[in-house]
Amino acid sequence: MLLLNCPYCNLSCEETEFLAGGQAHIKRQSIDSSDQEFESYLFARKNPKGVHIERWQHLYGCGKWFHVARSTVTLEIFGSYSAQTLSPPKKIRANINKKLPEWHWENSK
């Protein structure tokens, strides 16, 4: 049972208040994309044994979507941040690198 921090409410709440939304920072592909790009957009999800940057919604709270950096192996949470960003903020990345120096946002794209 995860504990997640909603960056809008600034509250740490039980997982049951939230809805998981899968991989974050997916760039929408549309009309001008190739079949391959469109397929990747819809289905090719990162499935790392390690840091996963993912979307969550504070469904039974403020209703806001936000992003979380979480390990899929230890379930450690490295931080949550606004969904209205194109990449994880520096602070989150630094937090991850404290534990996992090898990890780079660019590599994990």
């Binding site: 044994k49 899929t72 379930l75």
Partner: peptide, 14 residues
């Protein structure tokens, strides 16, 4: 099943 990616072979109690 849980809604989030997970490799721990454990799940959430709810």
């Amino acid at each position: 099943a849980d809604g989030y990616n997970n490799y721990t072979q454990r799940g959430s109690f709810q």
